[in-house]
Nucleic acid binder design. Structure first.
Length: 764
DNA sequence: TTAGGGTTAG
C-alpha cells in the first residue's frame, strides 16, 4: 500500500479538513550498417588472357541483334577447345553492363545444348549479379535478378548467393537476405557467408535468428571451431548488445557463451574485459561473476583485469566473502593479482571503515615475496589508507603514512594525498592544520586543484567561517583556480545556514554566470536550506525550476519538502508531495515516515504516530533513532513520562537502537519539567555510562530542573561536569544561572564557572 | 584501484 493511500486512510485523524524497457537498440536500423564485403574485383578489371574469353568478347562487341549465333555456338558450346563455367563468368563480366549481360544470359539459356548442366547459366548469372551490384539502383535490380533466378530455375552459385546476402544486408533488405540464406544448402554455407549473415542479423536486431544461426554454426563446429569467426561474431556482437540498454535473451546469450567455452572458443582478453565491464556497469554483477567463473573453469585465458572489475563491484556492495572467494580462485589458477587488485581490496576495506584490516593487508603486501617478486605499494594504495584513516579521525596515523610514503622511492604524495588529509583536518575542525598542509603541498611542489579549494571552502563553511571561505576563494581565483558547482554548493549551504538567503540565491545564479551549470545537488541544497528556514514558497519555486532544468527530485529532496510543509502545518501541500513522490516512482523511506510521525507526535495525534510506526515496519522499513525520538517527544509533550520511558527502554532492548543525545535531552527535559530531577540526573549518569556525550541543551535542562527544586549543591556539581565535558555555556545557561545564583548570593560561583574553575569542591 | 557539495526528531 502506498504511503499516500495510507495517509489518506489516516487522514480523518490527522486533519478532517484536508482532502486528500525495449530490446536491441544497439542493433536497430538506425545504426550505420557496416559495409558489406567488397565484391571481388571483376575480371573486367583484370586482363583476360584466355583466347576463348577474348574471342567471345570480340564477337559480342557487336550490337545484340547482330551477334553471330553460329560462331558463338561454336566457340561456347562445341567443346573444342574445351569451355568451362568460369569462361562464362569472365565473358559476362567483360561485357561491362548488366543489361547487355542479360541478353547474353538469354543467348546462353536458349542455345546451350547442355540442358542438364546449368553451370554455364549459374556462372553467367553470378557475373550479372556482380555487374548489377556496381550500377545505380542496384537494390531493386538485385531483387529483380533474384526473382528471375527463381522464375527461370537458374541455380545460383554460392558466390552469387553470398553477394545477394551481402548487398541485401547493406540495403537493409533483411527479409530478402534471410530468404536467400534459407535457399542455400547447409553444407554449402561457408565461413564467410555465416560471418556476413550473422553479423547482419545482429546489426538489424534479429537477435533470435542470429542466435539460431550461431547455434547451427556450433553444430557444424568441426568446420568452424578452429576458426575465429564464432569468437569474432559472438563476442563483438555481445559487447554491442550490452552497450544498448535493452534487455532480454540473456539465457540464450549465456547459453551460446557457454557452448563456445565448451568448444574451447574463448573471448580474447580485451573482449572478456569489456564484456565484464559492461555487465558490471549494467548492474549485472551476478551474471558477470558467473561468466567469468565459466571462463576460468573452462580453462580460458583470464588475466587480473576482469577479476579487478568484479572485485570493485563486490567491494562497492561490501561483499567481502565473495571478494575473498574470487581471490582464492585467482590464486588457484595462478592469476597473479596486480597492484590494482590489492588497491581495490585495501580501498574496499577502508571505505567500509575496516581500516585496521586494510592496514594489515598493507603490512603483508609490503613484506610479500612471490617468486622473487616483492610488492611495492603505489601512491593509490597510500592514498586509500590515508583517506581511510582520516575518515575515522585517526589523523596522526594518516600524517605518519604521509611521511612514510615520502621516504619510499617513486611514491611521492600527490594532490589526492594532500586533499585526503586536508579534508580529515577540516572535518575535525582543525582548519589551521589543514592550511598548514595546504602551504606544505605548495612547498613540496604539489599544485592544489579545485578539490583542494572545495575541501577548504567546505571546511571553513561548516565551522561558520563563511566570510573567510569567500575571501579564500577570491585569492584562489587570482591564482587561477576557478570554483566549480561543488564550491558554490558548499557556500550556498553555508549562507542558508546563516539565514542569508539573498546571498545564497545570488550564488546560485552565479553558478551559470561562471560558466558552470547547477547540478541536481546544487538545486537540492538550496531547496533544503529554504525548507529548513520554512520558506516553502521559495522552496517550491526552486523545485519547479529544477524540474524545468531536466532534473528530478530524489527521496532526500522530497523528504526535505515534505518535512518543511509538515513543520509549517501545510498538510495539503505535504500530501501532494507524497503523491507526486510515489507517482514519480520514488519510494518513501524511513525519513519520509519520520516527517509524518514527527508532525503527528508534535500535534498530539499519538494514535496516528503509533500507526505510522507500525506502517513503516509493515513496509519493510526499519524505524530509526529519529522515529523513536519523535514518538518519545510526543509523549513528553503530553507529560506522559511513563510511556516515553517505556518506549525508551523498548528501543534499547527490543529494537537494539542506541539512544543518542537528542533522545536523552528530550527525556531529561521532560523529567525536570515534572520535578523528577533525581530521575533526570540518573538518566544523565546512564548517558555517560553508555558513552553518549551530553551537550549544552542537556545541561540547560538540568539547570532548569535543579533551580525549580532548588538543589543548589547538585547544580554546582553539574556545573563542574559541564566543564569536564568541554560543554560551553550559552546565553540560556547564563540566563538560568545568573537569575538563580544572584538570588541566592552565589554570583562568585558563577564567576568562577565562567572562568573555568571548579565550583562544587568549595561548597559547604 | 585514490580526494570535495544536499535529508528527518530536541
Amino acid at each position: 500500500m502506498s504511503l499516500f493511500r495510507s495517509l489518506h486512510s489516516l487522514k480523518p485523524l490527522l486533519n478532517p479538513a484536508v482532502d486528500l524497457s525495449p530490446f536491441l537498440r544497439c542493433f536497430s536500423t538506425d545504426h550505420e550498417p557496416e559495409p558489406a564485403a567488397e565484391p571481388e574485383p571483376g575480371p573486367s578489371h583484370q586482363p583476360h588472357n584466355d583466347p576463348i574469353v577474348t574471342q567471345a568478347l570480340d564477337l559480342l562487341q557487336a550490337p545484340e541483334n547482330s551477334w553471330d549465333p553460329a560462331e558463338l555456338n561454336r566457340l561456347l558450346f562445341s567443346n573444342s577447345p574445351t569451355t568451362v563455367p568460369t569462361h562464362f563468368s569472365k565473358i559476362t563480366l567483360g561485357l561491362g553492363a548488366s543489361g547487355k549481360a542479360l541478353k547474353f544470359l538469354d543467348f546462353v539459356q536458349s542455345h546451350s545444348p547442355q540442358k542438364d548442366a546449368p553451370a554455364f547459366l549459374s556462372h553467367t548469372f553470378q557475373s550479372i549479379v556482380k555487374l548489377a551490384s556496381r550500377e545505380p539502383g542496384w537494390e531493386k535490380a538485385l531483387l529483380e535478378l533474384y526473382k528471375m533466378s527463381k522464375q527461370r530455375d537458374i541455380p545460383l552459385t554460392i558466390n552469387a548467393l553470398t553477394l545477394l546476402v551481402s548487398f541485401f544486408g547493406r540495403a537493409g533488405m533483411v527479409d530478402e537476405a534471410v530468404s536467400v540464406f534459407d535457399d542455400i544448402d547447409r553444407n554449402a554455407r561457408d565461413r564467410h557467408l555465416y560471418e556476413l549473415f550473422v553479423g547482419m542479423l545482429f546489426r538489424y536486431g534479429r537477435f533470435e535468428s542470429a542466435l539460431k544461426v550461431l547455434d547451427e554454426m556450433l553444430e557444424l563446429h568441426s568446420r568452424f571451431a578452429a576458426s575465429d569467426i564464432p569468437r569474432k561474431i559472438f563476442f563483438s556482437a555481445l559487447l554491442r548488445r550490452l552497450q544498448g540498454d535493452g534487455g532480454g535473451h540473456e539465457d540464450e546469450i549465456d547459453g551460446i557463451f557457454v557452448k563456445l567455452l565448451e568448444l574451447g572458443v574463448f573471448p580474447d582478453s580485451i573482449a572478456l574485459l569489456n564484456i565484464i565491464k559492461k555487465l558490471c556497469r549494467n548492474g549485472e554483477i551476478g551474471r558477470a561473476w558467473d561468466l567469468l567463473l565459466r571462463v576460468i573453469q573452462s580453462g580460458g585465458p583470464v588475466e587480473a583485469a576482469p577479476c579487478n572489475v568484479i572485485l570493485v563491484e563486490l567491494g562497492k556492495r561490501l561483499e567481502f566473502n565473495r571478494m575473498r572467494e574470487l581471490m582464492i580462485k585467482m590464486k588457484e589458477i595462478s592469476i597473479q593479482p596486480d597492484v590494482v587488485t590489492l588497491g581495490i581490496l585495501i580501498n574496499s576495506l577502508c571505505k567500509s571503515r575496516r581500516v585496521d584490516d586494510a592496514l594489515e593487508v598493507f603490512e603483508r603486501i609490503c613484506t610479500m615475496h612471490d617468486d622473487g617478486f616483492s610488492w611495492e605499494p603505489d601512491a593509490v594504495i597510500y592514498n586509500c589508507l590515508i583517506d581511510g584513516l582520516c575518515k575515522v579521525g585517526r589523523l596522526d596515523e594518516a600524517a605518519e603514512l604521509l611521511r612514510k610514503m615520502t621516504l619510499q622511492d617513486g611514491c611521492m604524495p600527490n594532490v589526492i594525498t594532500y586533499n585526503c588529509l586536508i579534508d580529515g583536518y577540516c572535518k575535525c575542525c582543525e582548519i589551521d592544520k589543514a592550511f598548514q598542509l595546504f602551504d606544505q603541498m605548495s612547498e613540496e611542489g604539489v599544485q592544489p586543484n579545485v578539490v583542494t579549494v572545495n575541501t577548504l571552502v567546505d571546511g571553513m563553511c561548516k565551522f561558520g567561517r563563511v566570510n573567510s571561505a569567500v575571501e579564500f576563494l577570491k585569492e584562489m581565483k587570482v591564482r587561477g583556480l576557478s570554483p566549480n558547482v561543488r564550491t558554490y554548493t558548499s557556500l550556498i549551504k553555508a549562507f542558508c545556514n546563516a539565514n542569508n538567503f539573498e546571498k545564497a540565491m545570488e550564488l546560485f545564479q552565479e553558478i551559470s554566470r561562471s560558466g558552470c551549470s547547477p547540478d541536481s545537488i546544487a538545486y537540492y541544497t538550496l531547496i533544503s536550506g529554504l525548507c529548513t528556514a520554512g520558506r516553502m514558497d521559495d522552496a517550491s519555486s526552486v523545485a519547479t525550476e529544477l524540474k524545468a532544468a531536466g532534473f528530478s527530485l530524489d527521496a532526500v529532496c522530497y523528504n526535505n519538502l515534505i518535512g518543511g510543509f509538515c513543520r509549517k502545518n501545510k498538510l495539503e501541500e505535504a500530501y501532494e508531495m507524497v503523491k507526486e513522490m510515489e507517482s514519480s516512482g520514488v519510494k518513501p523511506d524511513a525519513v519520509t515516515y519520520n516527517c509524518w510521525l514527527s508532525y503527528n507526535a508534535k500535534t498530539g495525534n499519538l494514535t496516528t504516530a503509533n500507526k505510522l510506526m507500525r506502517l513503516m515496519i509493515e513496509q519493510g522499513l526499519v524505524p530509526t533513532v529519529v522515529s523513536y525520538g519523535a514518538l518519545i517527544h510526543g509523549y513528553c509533550l503530553e507529560n506522559n513520562v511513563e510511556e516515553a520511558m517505556k518506549i525508551f527502554r523498548e528501543m534499547n532492548s527490543v529494537s537494539k537502537i542506541p539512544p543518542n543525545t537528542v533522545i536523552y535531552n528530550i527525556l531529561i527535559e521532560c523529567l525536570c519539567r515534572n520535578d523528577e530531577v533525581d530521575s533526570a540526573c540518573s538518566l544523565m549518569d546512564d548517558m555517560m555510562e553508555k558513552g553518549v556525550r551530553p551537550n549544552t541543551t542537556t545541561f540547560n535542562a538540568l539547570f532548569r530542573g535543579l533551580r525549580q527544586t532548588n538543589c543548589l549543591k547538585k547544580a554546582f556539581e553539574v556545573m563542574d561536569r559541564m566543564h569536564e565535558h568541554a560543554c560551553k555555556p550559552d546565553y540560556v545557561t547564563m540566563e538560568i544561572l545568573m537569575e538563580w545564583l544572584s538570588a541566592v548570593g552565589e554570583v562568585g560561583k558563577l564567576k568562577s564557572f565562567v572562568q573555568g574553575y571548579e565550583v562544587a569542591a568549595f561548597t559547604a
